[in-house]
Amino acid sequence: MKMAAAGSLLPLMEALSESNDLWAPIVEDGQVVFGRWKGESLPDNYRVTDNSPKELLLPQTESLMRFEGVYDQLDIKEEPIEGPKVAFGVRPCDAAALDLIAEVLGSDDYPDERFGQRKDSTTVVTLACDEAGEHCFCRAVGGSPASDRGSDIMIYPTDEGYLLRAVTGAGQDILRQCESALDPAEGGDVESAAADCEDIEMPLAEEISPDGVTEDWHRVFESPIWEQLAGRCRSCGICGYVCPTCYCFALFDDLRGNSGVRFRGWDSCQFEDYLLMAGDHNPRPTETERTRQRFMHKLHYFVSRWGEYGCVGCGRCADKCPVGIHMLAAIKELEEVV
């Protein structure tokens, strides 16, 4: 199913918001963030939002359950999950990232119910990119500016407006819902619109590729580059928190009197206390081990477990890292090691 929108996506968003909880890139105090839609057009020239849409599926903190009583007469109630959502204007890298997280959290052994339910009830409407940002490198890690991975509907920008294509049945249903806001895409060539996006220039991705850099991972692991990169690391959690594929979480309890809540919340392997155990033993005690862990996880451990990079090339970490610890910089230096 394909449809077209001339000029603006606003009528489509308005139609979508009528019967859906619509989330999209919005401008808030000059920042472009992914949040609940407030009736505005998509921000001009946004590349990716500051925060990634992963928080729709894996909120930064959520309560898993409530309990009454502590040591006695314990009563546990699981927390219900909020209703379905439409995530609009997601970039292809971020949509793919949702799929990537689902590899882990949706794996057969212990599927994460809460993540799974949200994933099933979230419709992802992806806007293909017609320009790469300063930090973009999706193509270097197997993605594409026109990729429909993880998306229910694809929107391709064209000279006249936009062409829409339903990728999944859920996408089709949603498109039908707002047919009135769209035109039939007569003569619109979705393939060529997609190909145009596919072909955009992406200077960073042309130069550097992670392929093969971790083949001899023992050597990579021992490389002195980690200490150099980590020397300037501030041990903050920016990289992991803005990353659309980082999914690490912690569980923690909060107690008031005799009742409480067990929360699940994001955590970052860059924090000093991430792996700190009772008795003060820390297997990754300094920035060096922690920085190495982050890169090794994305470039090697994830690959060996799930068969692909744990990175979609959105460039947020590179953009937001206060001290320029860049995924591609690490890869470039690793290439020299290999």
Binding site: E28, D29, Q31, V33, D50, N51, Q60, R234, S235, C236, G237, I238, Y241, V242, S268, F271, P322
Partner: peptide, 16 residues
């Protein structure tokens, strides 16, 4: 509320 709701608690502000 609006400003703080964006906050990710990455602690970069404290760390620098």
């Amino acid at each position: 509320v609006r400003q703080f709701d964006r906050c990710l608690r990455c602690f970069a502000c404290r760390n620098v």
